[in-house]
Amino acid sequence: MRASLSDVPVSFISARVSTRLVAAFLALGLAGCQSVDLSRNDLAAGLSVQSKAPAFQVGNGEIVPVRAGSAIVVDADSGKVLFGDDPDGLRHPASLSKLLTLYLLFEAIEAKRVTLDTDLVVSTHAASRPPSKLGLRPGSTIKVRDAMYALAVKSANDVATVVAENLADGSEEAFARRMNMTAREIGMRRSNFVTPSGLPDDLQISTARDMAVLALQIRKRFPGFVPLFSTESFDYAGRHYVSTNKLLGRVPGVDGMKTGFVNASGFNLVASARRNGRGVIVVVIGGQTGRARDMRVEQLIDTYLGPAT
């Protein structure tokens, strides 16, 4: 049985980890990372999908491989695992991390710490996050309701930082600690979050199983917010944004949830689907292309829910 990352002694951490990352690892017990969802405009801005980071050793001999496949299919009603392909293998979640950021935002709304109309202040740090982003300006504000759509539909990295800083007294690091604490509470045993967005970080790690656990918990605890993940597009500040989840509106029964990409992870997707009274959560991590990832998810949906009629 593989040891949990929370049990990994510091002496096993790769020497390639910087002093800052070691300190974060010690302080958080397990830290996280972010991801990028790339549009054609983002690529034009200079983000390359060609480079590949080396495999990264995080501890106890465990390696986070580059663009390695991992998948799981879970019954959305019972939680029973129907299929697994290295579901507990460590991977970089990329923007799948934003599902947990949204979970914590939903908690804040439920606890009445914020409302849908609360104005979230944009810091200089948040505005400087790389694409995908809304392009928010320092000192401006964005309402919670718009932030939710920006995260779920556009996968905006600047908005992820805005949410984190406003919920954790201006500190992404404090928000990451909340992410890791919450992850443990809901049963995500092999995940570590450093940032709220999933931008590249060696210590931003998770598994297909943990992402399925998170998806199930969102649907169970916050059913009122589940329709957010089926939104195909939204408008903000005069611009129209289309969902990064290309299965929405194309594959019958698909009703959410979230995409992710960084060079080291490949193309990731958590998808929920329902046909003929049955539902599944499908997680695919490590697609070589977005198209290959989507085809894999669609094939798994068809296998476990039956072909679309």
Rank of each mutant, 00 (worst) to 15 (best):
R184E: 10
D302C: 04
V297Q: 12
R145Y: 11
A45K: 14
F234Q: 04
V81K: 15
S70P: 06
A183V: 08
L99H: 10
R296L: 13
F225G: 05
F175I: 07
V162P: 04
M211A: 05
V194Y: 13
S51A: 13
S243L: 04
I13S: 01
G249F: 05
S95E: 10
T118M: 08
R145V: 07
I218E: 02
A164S: 12
G187E: 08
E232T: 07
D85T: 05
D201A: 14
K246H: 11
V122Y: 02
T124N: 11
R184I: 00
V73A: 11
S51C: 06
S48M: 06
N276I: 00
S51F: 12
R274G: 10
T207E: 01
T161G: 05
S35Y: 13
A150W: 01
A212R: 03
L47D: 05
A76C: 05
P200S: 09
R91Y: 07
S243G: 03
G279P: 08
R129I: 03
L28M: 11
V282T: 09
T303Q: 12
V8P: 00
D37N: 14
L214T: 02
L216C: 00
S272N: 12
M295S: 14
A164L: 06
R221G: 01
S48V: 03
N41S: 12
R221W: 00
A126D: 11
Q204N: 13
D88L: 02
G256K: 04
I285R: 03
P87C: 05
D158S: 00
F106K: 04
G266L: 04
